[in-house]
Nucleic acid binder design. Structure first.
Lengths: 261, 261
DNA sequence: GAATAAACTG
DNA sequence: CAGTTTATTC
């Protein structure tokens, strides 16, 4: 089973790229972030035409997440947002069980700048994600949390660590928050498979960052040990980031071997 | 000599259509209205690449006019706006002499709604256009005033006259204002050549007006008698109105025989 | 309904 | 730099 995660930066602005990606990469499941569309206006039909059923949880202008799965795959136990989130909370999480794998698709708050209120909210959000995990899951389940984490786990995930040191996306507090997920039992699947590789998933639109490969790896696939055992490979597909008017993120993909169970 | 007039509704949004039109219709001169761009940002190079020299008089967001002429044709005695217009007046007129023909390119104020202040401004603008004509020109000169007049001269120029009766674009006061230009000596060239033909040049973006051919003829080519004598034909080219994301106006074209002088 | 600008976020 | 909304015009 191939699962992809992509911050599309507006699904409606990205419909053509989305079709291209589904066609070429052919994932069984695609987790999307920053769909930026309310549920009433979600382009369900376009996904349907491409051969995918989709569950979504979005809002106007900001945030919004969705999981698309190839027709034939069941999408079970859909969960939206974190425990305790009010109805008007930013829509940042959608989870579902597909082919026995629990898939939690997250768009972690960006945090704006270190020390700001949004930064505190980001850290709190990570904390609450951990509580959700502890409440509903165990590290011995086949579970994947993927999405835009808005944190580069280590300096290996940053094109120019000095310039980013202490900044948002690279701050020790954010890395510590991510670390708690690792402590619970999750593993950064791409880093596990490629311990030394410089791989990025996001490049700022400004300053020709993509052209110069000034990127960060902030889109992650975290897996529990049983799923890590099934992980054949994890990689970033830059092809859609090369197109005209791309998202600023490239998709991360993970290939899983069939379950032995 | 072939002269065209087209309300492009933003020259920057219409660059591709503009290239298509210049390529296919191949006018010697193109008068444009609603360029919606300040002179510093006018896409002079794109016109140059297409083989046209261009003079322009524009502003941010609204209005803006330009005359493009095939390389090799001189563009002389450029006049911008009406006598007495202040520097900050809406930029609605550019005139030039090309191959001995005085070409006055106008974007007449829309008038918003009958009885409003903009409507009074529109009527006053027509009046001042007449004064300009009287001050600088004579009906025995080869002179063309073309552009978006925002008036349908008669009910023959309106798809459904009853629905438009007394409305802006069709109001008796506007038609009377236009009538003063006819009284001075100008002739509506298309109507002269095609006395009974239902021809439109503008279709509202809304309500599928183009599809239903619910249009008005508000883009005109008015000529003096010596130029009428040289007029071979006048028509509206709807091909660019059929493209994706078109202007709401289609170009009007006039073919002139060579001067006998 | 399509264009533009301004203010906002990432 | 690219996306969004809102207000404005036609």
């Amino acid at each position: 089973m191939r699962i992809a995660s992509w911050n599309v930066n507006s699904i409606r602005a990205r419909l053509e790229h989305l079709r291209t990606f589904l066609e070429t990469a052919s994932p069984d499941v695609l987790c999307m972030q920053e769909t930026k569309v309310e549920d009433e206006k979600f382009p369900e039909e376009a996904l349907g035409d491409a051969g995918y059923r989709v569950v979504f949880f979005g809002q106007k202008t900001y945030n919004g997440v969705a999981i698309a799965a190839r027709y034939g795959l069941g999408i079970e136990d859909v969960k939206k947002n974190l425990d305790g989130d009010e109805d008007d909370a930013p829509r940042r999480l959608i989870a579902a069980t597909i082919e026995g794998v629990r898939i939690i698709n997250v768009y972690v708050p960006n945090g704006q700048a270190v020390g700001t209120k949004p930064f505190a909210y980001k850290l709190a959000w990570f904390e609450r994600l951990g509580l959700d995990l502890a409440a509903h899951h165990r590290p011995d389940e086949p579970l994947l949390i993927c999405g835009d984490f808005n944190v580069a786990p280590t300096n290996l995930d940053v094109h120019e660590p000095k310039r980013w040191e202490g900044q948002v996306l690279c701050h020790p507090d954010e890395r510590a928050a991510l670390g708690k997920l690792f402590a619970w039992g999750l593993v950064d699947a791409l880093r596990d498979k490629h311990p030394d590789e410089k791989v990025y998933s996001w490049w700022d639109y400004r300053m020709g960052a993509y052209r110069k490969n000034h990127g960060l790896r902030i889109d992650l696939a975290l897996v529990t040990p049983p799923l890590l055992a099934r992980t054949k490979d994890v990689w970033v597909d830059r092809s859609v980031r090369e197109l005209e008017r791309p998202s600023d993120h490239a998709p991360v993909l993970i290939d899983l071997a069939e379950s032995q169970a």
